[in-house]
């Protein structure tokens, strides 16, 4: 199942129903990426082709290709110059 969003014709079911699958929390938990208390197990970044915009008091973390390898980047507020973390 690649699209984890609740579909319009799905029933809204929370965690713990004896017979039905949890649909309400499905997208957020995304295959084990987060714990039941909402914390990250890990974060997967899909490759971006450009630097995302950032507003005041924001920092963006994202993946972008450089020199043929996928690298992790951070961009500071107000669209400042991005730097490579790794």
């Amino acid at each position: 199942m690649s699209d984890l969003r609740i579909q319009y014709n799905e029933e809204m079911v929370g965690r713990g129903h004896p017979t039905k699958a949890d649909t309400l929390n499905r997208l957020f938990l995304a295959g084990g990426m987060r714990s039941p208390e909402g914390k990250n197990h890990w974060a997967v970044f899909k490759k971006q082709t450009g630097d995302p915009p950032t507003a005041a008091d924001e920092l963006a973390l994202y993946a972008k290709e450089e020199g043929g390898e996928l690298a992790l980047y951070a961009r500071p507020a107000l669209g400042g110059p991005a730097w490579r973390l790794i």
Partner: peptide, 20 residues
């Protein structure tokens, strides 16, 4: 963001990287 300790690296697909 808070990251819980992992004991092994998560799987990554094509065009994906993981932070953990």
């Amino acid at each position: 963001s808070v990251f819980k300790k992992q004991t092994s690296p998560p799987d990554t697909g094509v065009d994906e990287g993981a932070l953990y």
